[in-house]
Computed example of a mutant assay.
Amino acid sequence: MATTQDLTLNAITATTVVDATTFTIGFDFTDAGQKKNLQYLQENNYQLFAYKGASGPKQITAGLPTWFAEPFTEMFGVVEIDYTPKYKVYVFNQSVIGANTTIKMQVLSDEVGLGTALVFNSDGSITSTSGSVPADSIQIKNNRPASTSNVTVGLAALINGSYAPFCAFTSTPQGSINMTPHEKICMFAAQIGLQSGSVTAEAAAPGCTFSFSASTIGYDLLVIDGTYGLRNVDGTPYVTQISSGESLNQLLNL
């Protein structure tokens, strides 16, 4: 089973697969100016971070799990990051989630579609069930006895061929949560020691936000000279630049 650390950059064109479109985020480090910026990022131990979110009750207050964390030392040439809106539900047996906690997907469901209802059982299994679920959401019921402790649940989405967590909610015994994923993305490059699953509340450096849709399935980005923020390549779909310290929840409209 792939872990949250198994994210490997690859390069494929955006295609329609099964019932979901693969969206892409591209960088071109063959350009002389971008190659110079890449050299700086590599020499100073920068990583590229990505965040997305989901709406739902009892979202943890400490922030969002880091969805994507990739060191620039692993990048060169033309880089494409591929995201397909396919989901699995995870469970983490820790209920008190503070800043910099790393979410561990200790239990991971099979791939599930939107509109699906699931049950988390005392033995750690996740099973499907019938229920009235909004068409844009996935429901998880915590079927453990009322006397047991809370757990953390959330959604993992497919990025670069592996499932990684991008949202987190506190799940009480016998309670249900509807989780509605969003297609807005936040990205930045920073010198911080986070990994996929690490919880943080704010953008740690200048970056950008953008939204995927049926009409916009790819974004071409570049690293800005001097600030090492991110923006879109001229003439390609527009992204909104953000500043260090901005709230990830507000940036992603959660």
Rank of each mutant, 00 (worst) to 15 (best):
F166A: 06
N143Q: 12
L248P: 03
A14I: 10
D220P: 01
N249A: 12
N253K: 07
N178I: 05
A135K: 15
V223H: 00
T8P: 00
T170F: 01
Q241T: 07
V78S: 08
L118S: 08
A11T: 04
F169I: 10
F23W: 06
G63R: 02
M75V: 03
L38M: 09
P134N: 11
K104P: 00
V239Q: 10
N44T: 11
M1I: 00
T127D: 12
L252F: 02
P65H: 09
Q241P: 01
G63K: 03
L222T: 03
S55L: 15
L254C: 06
Y219R: 11
A190K: 05
Q39T: 11
E80A: 06
T170G: 06
A117M: 10
L64K: 09
Q195G: 08
S125V: 11
M179I: 15
N178C: 03
V89E: 04
L252Y: 03
A214K: 13
S196Q: 09
K86C: 03
T4D: 03
G26F: 02
Q139C: 14
V89Y: 03
G235R: 12
N150T: 12
I177W: 05
Y163T: 11
Q5E: 08
E111D: 08
I140P: 07
K58H: 12
V153I: 14
S128R: 15
T129R: 14
I12E: 03
K141H: 09
V153L: 03
A99C: 11
Q106F: 12
T116D: 13
S196V: 04
A117T: 14
G175F: 13
T148E: 15
T3L: 01
E183Y: 10
F188L: 08
K35D: 00
G33A: 07
M179C: 08
L48E: 06
G98Y: 12
T61L: 14
Q106V: 10
F68N: 02
V107Q: 09
A11W: 00
T216S: 08
F212E: 00
G98K: 14
